[in-house]
Amino acid sequence: MSLYRTELRRLTKRRFTRWAALAGVLVLLAVLVGVFLTNHKIGPAEQARAERQAEQQYQEQVRWAEQERTACVQAQAAGTPNDGRFPPDCQMITPPPRDAFQAQWFLPSTFDFRKGFDEMLVPFTAILALVGFVVGASFVGAEWSTGGMMNLLLWRPKRLTVLLTKLAALLTGLLTLVLTSAVVWTVGFWLVGTFRGTTAKTTSGAWQSFALTGLRGLLLVLTAATIGFALASLGRHTAMALGGAIALVVVGQFGVGILLSMANVKFVEAWLLPTYALAWMQKKVTLENWESCNNVSYSGECKPETLDITWQHSSTLLIGALVVLLGAALWTMRRRDIS
């Protein structure tokens, strides 16, 4: 019997794999339903209601300006101090222009498929990456903790072949899950745009952009699964990967973030992993340091110092982590005794 088919069957038959995949799919469906329920189709009635609300806000500002101007004139006539409440010339108190009150501010939330779908690929990737990490760690970690790996090596004594075949089966299963979920995710949000928003201007260029973002998301999910697999293989237990992930989040993220903030380090987010994951998905994340205003114009406008984190930085980090952890797992698999 083929070792690859055996491992693939073992992966799909594991109850933990099924429950983890089901939990991930249910969370994705909950997000999809939530977006559907919180958005609305914009029609003439909604547009007219928004115009009325904008006009109402404008009229309120006009009345407020008239009241303030009257109070200013009365205060000047009585000679009472205004403590800086009124300007020297009461005629300076005027309402904002009518075009400052735009009807679009009062429109209900609506889903624009062309603008919003690319952003919705970020939570899609995050949820499936978490599922991939946990399933990858459990798939090999359970083999070590139950003694299944030792029994398998009696049948197939080639250690690296066995470990890499398990990894190939894991990635194949996740690839199927991601591609299937991506089709449902895309169709679901197309329906959201159709019934609760708009799908206008979704050109071939937009679809190409979605495909590239989805491809980066797929690579991130597979990388997360491989890292979980490698950590569990290094520790020969699922808890090694899960404990390492918890330590990284609690100590490496929150702890480092708090310490760097206390030390007034610029661009604290540049030291946090979620920033690089987001930069990988969005191609670039711009960090701003509002503590320092380097280019202050004569009008007093503050332009904060910025730092760009690009997908190239993220790819270097991901590839480095993947090579180090997977390489260490393969090295220990070859060198250490199986007991």
Rank of each mutant, 00 (worst) to 15 (best):
L154K: 13
A241I: 03
L242M: 07
L121W: 03
T125V: 12
L107W: 02
C302R: 11
M149P: 08
A48R: 09
T286S: 08
L272M: 15
D308P: 01
W271N: 13
L318Q: 01
F36I: 02
K158D: 14
M92K: 15
A200K: 07
A129W: 01
I246C: 07
A77L: 09
Q208Y: 03
E288P: 00
T186C: 06
A225W: 04
L260V: 02
T194E: 11
L163V: 14
V73Q: 13
R156V: 12
M281S: 01
Q59E: 11
C72D: 11
V122P: 05
Q312W: 12
A169N: 08
G188E: 08
W331E: 07
L130F: 15
A168K: 10
V135W: 10
V251L: 15
L3F: 10
L29Y: 05
Q282P: 05
M1N: 00
K303G: 01
F36C: 00
R114I: 04
R216V: 02
N151S: 15
A321E: 03
Q74R: 06
L175M: 11
T12P: 01
L177T: 03
D308T: 12
L22I: 07
K266R: 14
V25Q: 08
R196K: 09
L218I: 08
G214M: 01
V162P: 03
Y4P: 06
